[in-house]
């Protein structure tokens, strides 16, 4: 299995083998039941659908309940699809845990960043802004957004103020510092997207 669904719990620091302190994010990952197997014959591609975070049967819609019943697992709040490793065999109803990872490998983490509301260009696009002193009036303003009579329009994709954050973001190549299999915990070096308590998808790194 290439990944798991998890929950970001928060950050702390641990000591590595050389005595250096490293900042880690604690992620509670899995155990994720296999809800559905997608096959080349039926769906046109190979994948496995995993679930995370159990919930009451009464909160699930009837069609979804049927899907969970078919796999023989408790209803889950979140679903996500993952690719399988080559030659791997899983069945519906199986439980996938952190044992798919090993310490010191690299991970990609997908999450939804904290929403920051409507923001100006200085915060949103890291623009420099104008001068604060010496009579500056363009303190945090947008500034010029293009030329004049030619092209007589604003270029597409021009960076401007607007809604920032609350977007799905992947962070690549984060080192997995430690695994606590008994508590289903992953300690990932550095920060990951999203607020504490938010759902994240943890995958084996694509580029490592």
């Amino acid at each position: 299995m290439q990944g798991l669904i998890g929950k970001k719990l928060g950050m702390t620091q641990i000591f590595d083998k050389d005595g250096a302190r490293i900042a880690v994010t604690v992620v509670e990952a899995g155990p994720c039941p296999v809800i559905q197997k997608k096959t080349k014959d039926v769906d046109g591609y190979e994948a496995v659908q995993l679930g995370f975070d159990e919930m009451k049967e009464s909160r699930v819609t009837k069609p979804m309940l049927g899907k969970f019943k078919k796999a023989g697992v408790a209803p889950c709040r979140f679903l996500a699809e993952f690719k399988m490793d080559e030659g791997e065999e899983v069945n519906e109803g199986d439980s996938v845990t952190t044992s798919i990872f090993e310490a010191d490998i690299f991970l990609d983490v997908v999450g939804v960043t904290k929403g920051r509301g409507f923001q100006g260009v200085v915060k949103r696009h890291n623009m420099a802004g104008g001068r604060m002193t010496h009579g500056g009036h363009s303190k945090r303003r947008v500034g010029s957004i293009g030329q004049c009579s030619y092209p007589a329009r604003v270029a597409k994709g021009q960076r401007m103020p607007g809604h920032m954050g609350a977007s799905r973001v992947s962070q690549q190549n984060l080192k997995l510092a430690e695994i606590r299999a008994e508590d289903n915990l992953l300690l990932i070096k550095g920060s990951i997207p999203g607020a504490n308590g938010s759902v994240v998808i943890v995958k084996k790194a694509l580029k490592k």
Partner: peptide, 13 residues
């Protein structure tokens, strides 16, 4: 703080 993280923090004091 999340109780799981708090427990981790207390571990090696």
């Amino acid at each position: 703080m999340n109780p799981v993280v708090a427990k981790l923090n207390r571990e090696n004091l």
